[in-house]
């Protein structure tokens, strides 16, 4: 390897945090003795910092842009959300009515079992008991199976409920005290200057911004995050459980997507908007997949690359 290639590799490996002790010693030696190398190191460090700043702040810029765009007065009918609502920010064309969930057809276990075997329990004839007794062992087995299944579901639900959420990085406080894990129904806050990464059930990780306040709670069997203020980046793999985020401005649902949320309830002290800004506002930016936001009775689906700011009617 020629010297410039070696120098470049040494610097790149150092900035990627994969230098060995020997490489680190070589780098230090070159920094101290070779002005050209030191200069290349400074340039590479600037680029590294510039890329970090550019990519990690890009979504923030998008959100502020969306916030400012939303603060412009709605002037034309085309800008208005479907349904004639003149309040709030524009709603994307891909406005979808919330589809009614399919009504589950509940077939009690004994009826399903009996139907599959041609046993007509509903119109039981006079000697039904005698006929039924022929199946008593199957009945007992079915009952035991149901009992086992019920116990299993009950215990796994309790286990899932009892399992706290792990804080992978960053600092989180509950009731003013820093914690290393978060339990359901506990209001927590991201403290310090950095974001906090929290692992949810199934391995989904959320990176919450500093000062974010939220609670994890369970809505029947589903876990949802109640976001009071702040926001974060959510990355949900297709094979992981769906993520639901409940906010004062509506519910955000996502399966297999990457998106950012920012619920602004108070403007930063230094922020002096030139146009009126309504609060609270919920900014949603979708990087991958799609996200559905239910706001003011309307479900809006945002696809990858779309962003939207939601706010209450004035």
């Amino acid at each position: 390897m020629s010297t410039p290639d070696r120098s470049h590799a040494l610097i790149q490996r150092y900035l990627d945090g994969v230098s060995s002790e020997a490489e680190l010693a070589e780098l230090e030696q070159l920094l101290a003795t070779d002005l050209q190398f030191a200069s290349a190191f400074a340039e590479a460090s600037r680029l590294h910092a510039g890329l970090e700043g550019y990519f990690r702040k890009q979504y923030k810029i998008d959100q502020v842009a969306a916030l400012l765009a939303a603060s412009q007065p709605v002037s034309s009918a085309a800008d208005r959300p479907a349904g004639g609502r003149s309040d709030g920010p524009p709603v994307p064309e891909r406005l979808v009515k919330p589809a009614s969930p399919p009504v589950p057809t509940f077939v009690p276990g004994y009826r399903w079992w009996s139907n599959s075997r041609g046993v007509r329990i509903e119109s039981r004839p006079a000697n039904a008991f005698q006929r039924l007794s022929r199946y008593r062992w199957q009945w007992i087995a079915a009952a035991m199976l149901l009992l086992t299944l019920g116990t299993f579901l009950w215990s796994s639900r309790n286990q899932a409920q009892d399992r706290p959420f792990q804080i992978i990085s960053g600092r989180v406080a509950v009731a003013g005290r820093e914690v290393t894990e978060i339990h359901e129904n506990a209001l927590f806050e991201v403290v310090g200057q950095g974001a906090a990464v929290i692992e949810l059930a199934g391995g989904t990780r959320v990176e919450l911004f500093p000062s974010t306040r939220a609670t994890f709670r369970r809505d029947s069997m589903r876990l949802l995050m109640h976001l009071e203020s702040g926001g974060g980046d959510f990355s949900v793999q297709p094979d992981q459980p769906a993520v639901q985020v409940e906010t004062v401005l509506g519910m955000v649902r996502s399966e297999g997507s990457r998106f950012s949320l920012d619920l602004v309830t108070v403007l930063p002290k230094r922020f002096s908007p030139t146009a009126p800004v309504w609060l609270p506002t919920l900014s949603v930016v979708v990087a991958q997949g799609s996200v559905t936001v239910e706001h003011a009775g309307v479900a809006t689906r945002l696809a990858a690359g779309e962003q939207r700011v939601f706010m209450n009617p004035t």
Binding site: S45, R46, H48, A49, E52, G53
Partner: peptide
């Protein structure tokens, strides 16, 4: 930005 780049070139870990 320059100051952050300088510190970042010497310190490991964004936090």
């Amino acid at each position: 930005l320059e100051l952050r780049a300088f510190i970042g070139s010497i310190v490991r870990g964004s936090h």
